[in-house]
């Protein structure tokens, strides 16, 4: 499971807003320059990002593995032709470049997730989106992080209980129904208790958050992001 890992790398010390800007710049540049030359440059830059995060390329690719079947399927489907010779490699070039582009962007986003604390991400959201919408998003994101493991444990207990009672002999739809209804029931139970607890503790729109400050290294990261965006427009 992809998550934050403590370290003292350069990327860990950067401001989360600067890192988000780099990610957005990277995605824009990758979509604007889906050429062998553009992707070669972006690969080198992604290598620099991984080095700044002290993350090995193999570890980053392992985190992006779920996407690999989809990325291979695109070029593979495009290469098939209805008649002999059945496979036309030239048709697969553009989809292969597009797939590779996605892989590079995924690797950079893995570096962000590995190097940014949840609390800092939440603060970044609230400082980027003003007013109550930003606060709603900040609180909501923090609650999703907090409750994901709890709800996963609920679902896995339901499945274990079902298996122990030979529920695995039931049909697929039956099993899905049992797991879903138990999951929804427990989630609503938890949400109602959480709602009462929030009100009881004077849940406010303006809580105290960790303080974010741009440092000199963040200016360098922002310039990097700005450079990527400018390159998109060239």
């Amino acid at each position: 499971m992809l998550s934050y890992e403590p370290h003292d790398s350069l990327a860990h010390r950067l401001d989360p807003r600067a890192k988000l800007a780099v990610q957005v710049g990277f995605a824009l540049a990758a979509f604007a320059h889906t050429t062998p030359r553009g992707l070669a440059i972006l690969t080198a830059l992604a290598g620099c990002v991984l080095a700044a995060a002290r993350l090995s390329p193999i570890a980053a690719l392992r985190e992006a593995r779920y996407a690999l079947p989809f990325l291979v399927a695109g070029p593979a489907i495009a290469a098939l032709t209805p008649g002999p010779p059945w496979i036309a490699a030239s048709q697969a070039v553009v989809p292969a470049l597009a797939s590779y582009r996605v892989l590079v962007v995924l690797v950079v986003s893995v570096a962000y997730v590995r190097t940014t604390r949840v609390r800092d991400s939440r603060t970044a959201v609230q400082s980027l989106v003003p007013g109550r919408p930003g606060r709603f998003l900040g609180v909501g994101v923090a609650l999703v992080f907090r409750f994901l493991p709890v709800l996963l444990a609920d679902l896995s207990r339901t499945r274990t209980a079902m298996r122990a009672r030979l529920g695995s002999e039931r049909g697929l739809i039956d099993r899905m129904e049992i797991v879903t209804s138990a999951g929804v029931r427990r989630a609503f139970g938890r949400a109602d208790r959480l709602g009462v607890a929030l009100r009881a503790r004077c849940f406010a729109w303006n809580p105290t958050l960790s303080r974010l400050r741009f440092a000199r290294r963040d200016v360098a990261a922002l310039c990097f992001a700005g450079g990527l965006v400018a390159w998109t427009l060239v």
Binding site: L2, L20, Y66, V113, V118, F145, L148
Partner: peptide, 14 residues
């Protein structure tokens, strides 16, 4: 922002 909620436990803007 990094919660592993997408298919296969993946996350990130990418």
């Amino acid at each position: 922002l990094g919660a592993p909620v997408f298919a296969g436990g993946s996350a990130g803007l990418g």
